[in-house]
Design a protein around this nucleic acid. Sequence first.
RNA 1: CGGGGCGUGGCGCAGUCUGGUAGCGCACCUGCUUUGGGAGCAGGGGGUCGGAGGUUCAAAUCCUCUCGCCCCGACCA
Length: 482
Amino acid sequence: MEEKERFVTEITPKSEDFSRWYTDVVRRAELADYTTVKGCMVIRPYGYATWEKVQECLDRRIKETGHQNAYFPMFIPESLLKKEAEHVEGFAPQVAWVTQGGDEQLEERLAIRPTSEAIICSMYSKWVRSWRDLPILINQWVNIVRWEKETRPFLRTREFLWQEGHTVHATEKEAEEETLKILEVYRDFIENDLAIPLIAGLKTESEKFAGALKTYAVEALMTDGKALQAGTSHHLGQHFAKAFDIKFEDKDQKMKYAWQTSWGVTTRLVGAIIMTHGDDSGLILPPKVAPIHVIIIPIPAAGWQKKVLPLVKEVERRLKGIELRVQADLREVYSPGWKFSEWEMRGVPLRLEIGMKEVAEKRAVAVRRDTGAKMLISLVDLEKEIPLLLAEIQNSLFKKAKKFLQDNTHTVDDYDKFKEIIKTKGGFIYSFWCGDPQCEQKIKEETTATIRALPLKPDHVPGGCVKCGRPSAQRVYFAKAY
RNA sequence: CGGGGCGUGGCGCAGUCUGGUAGCGCACCUGCUUUGGGAGCAGGGGGUCGGAGGUUCAAAUCCUCUCGCCCCGACCA
């Protein structure tokens, strides 16, 4: 953006310092604020309203696919957490413990859930007796605690909000289908509602969830060239069923261990929205999850209360009438210019300006947050034009992000070039990998890039591993990750 | 957990090297004039300088210890 066009000056430009830009946006848009406990942020009303929209969009899809919401306790007895060996090993370093209640020392310490497999499986073991009890399709929206060493608002906090689905099935095939179905739910939701394009794929052994058979994930690319895991769906196999004794008598009258899945997305998605769409003026919210679709700014002049105000109210009423989220900023102590900047920082998709001129000409000035484009909208067309504009903004945000993802996905066969790209512009690198965890590890050490995903639909063109040259059946996606 | 940076009114900072009892911008309060890209003028309120100890006639400033936060890496959503 040209300097003369840069109206918002309270946010560090992206190009100058991306990390600082990010935290500036979080604070200036009043999404969240820091507290005295490291890694524990307050999600402020505007940030929480955005999260609520995200929740609404996903919750609807989760329910449409046959799942029900429930609530399980946040305290998990140590003995339960320890039942699945790989699981406890993976989470042990991040668990916060309750050892005392009031003055009383607890007999057994309680983990504050870092994820709920243990507590939920302990209940499933009681509830599952017959094939008739299956499948169990449960989801919960809760808070989670993981004692992270390094924290960043929304991206990595010690306490965060998420949804976690936990399902039980009679067969491996059903569990696998569920895992992939949810992956598709996430993809559809994140691409269509959050306008964030994704790469979906399978995780390598080293990147998969502790205790899972396999982990699928959707990965997004932030505008600083780093990948962000946006959602995960795990096929747990029978690992937890065996550890927690979840057995059922099948139609063939044999006792069998159940097959399970778990899957989740977190408040990190808010961070993904910020880093995918935001610009030097602050946040840009996709209309589908924006708490406010349209902000109306009256332009005061002598006698505006009599002439301008009634029109502002009328426009507000009419747009609310077609289910749009509209707000008129009637504060008289702030100038219109001040308000423009304020609502730009907060990422409201569309602004309407209404002054004496608009009253006279029976129209409104509309300004798109994503492009800054100004246009005149005839008042008679309001109910038709505004929804079209919002849909266009939603669409355009996705297209722009999609182009960025494509432009920054590099097919690379040369290891030096691999290193060069990771060091400079970042992005996804699509290269051959032999499948050896040692090569994966070496690449990570030497380049800081990790394998983000093995493609779901391999292109089956063989080649040589970018690191060791050994034969490889398939390219995979590498990137530096959050 | 390693490396770097920073703690001074609500926010951003200066003052620290060279000790002398705290200042600037924004924000806030009052009034008037204003309002089409963060309005102007006038007046005003607010900080024992992250914390503890020490040196000194005197400490934001020097010394010791400590706590916290931010950024970059290793581990994780």
